[in-house]
Amino acid sequence: MSAARFPLADLPDEQPRELGRLLFAGPVDFVKGVVAMPGLPPADRIEVCFAGRSNVGKSSLINALTGRKTLARASNTPGRTQEVNYFALGDRRYMVDLPGYGYAEAPVAIVEKWQALLRSYLQGRQTLRRAFVLIDMRHGVKAVDKEILTLLDKSAVTFQVVLTKADKVNAATRAETIAQVQAALTKHPAAFPQIVVTSSEKGEGIETLRAIIATLE
Rank of each mutant, 00 (worst) to 15 (best):
A3S: 14
A4H: 05
R5V: 12
P7K: 02
L8D: 03
A9Y: 04
A9K: 08
A9E: 09
D10T: 11
D10M: 14
L11N: 01
P12T: 03
E14H: 11
Q15C: 02
P16E: 05
R17Y: 01
E18I: 05
G20V: 13
L23Y: 08
L23N: 02
L23T: 02
F24N: 03
G26R: 08
G26T: 06
D29F: 13
F30S: 03
F30T: 06
K32S: 15
G33C: 07
G33K: 10
G33H: 09
V34A: 09
V35P: 03
A36Y: 03
A36H: 12
P38M: 07
G39I: 01
G39T: 04
L40Q: 03
L40W: 12
P41F: 00
P42H: 13
R45D: 08
I46G: 10
I46P: 09
E47A: 13
V48K: 01
F50E: 05
A51W: 10
N55G: 13
L61C: 06
I62L: 14
N63M: 08
T66C: 15
G67F: 01
R68N: 01
K69G: 00
T70M: 13
L71P: 04
A72T: 10
A72Q: 13
A72L: 07
R73C: 01
N76S: 15
G79Q: 08
G79M: 06
R80A: 13
E83T: 14
V84E: 01
V84G: 10
V84H: 00
Y86M: 08
F87A: 04
D91W: 03
R93D: 07
R93F: 13
Y94T: 12
M95R: 08
M95Y: 10
D97A: 07
P99S: 07
G102K: 05
A106Q: 09
P107Q: 04
I110A: 12
I110W: 05
E112P: 05
E112F: 02
A116G: 15
L117C: 06
L118S: 14
L118T: 13
R119E: 14
S120Y: 02
Q123T: 15
G124S: 05
G124P: 07
R125L: 08
R125M: 07
Q126T: 13
T127S: 14
T127V: 09
T127L: 09
R129L: 07
R129P: 04
R130H: 07
V133H: 04
D136F: 11
H139Q: 14
V141R: 08
E147L: 10
L149G: 01
T150V: 05
T150H: 14
L151A: 12
F159Y: 07
V161A: 06
V161C: 10
V162H: 02
V162K: 02
L163H: 01
K165A: 11
A166I: 00
A166Y: 08
D167I: 08
N170P: 06
A171Y: 01
A171F: 00
T173S: 12
A175M: 06
A179M: 09
Q180P: 03
Q182L: 14
A183H: 04
A183W: 00
A183E: 11
A183R: 10
A184V: 03
A184T: 06
T186S: 10
T186P: 03
T186Y: 09
K187D: 15
K187R: 14
K187P: 01
A190F: 00
A191T: 04
F192R: 00
V196N: 09
V196G: 09
S199Q: 04
K202I: 11
G203W: 11
G203S: 05
G205L: 10
T208D: 14
A211D: 14
I213N: 05
T215F: 09
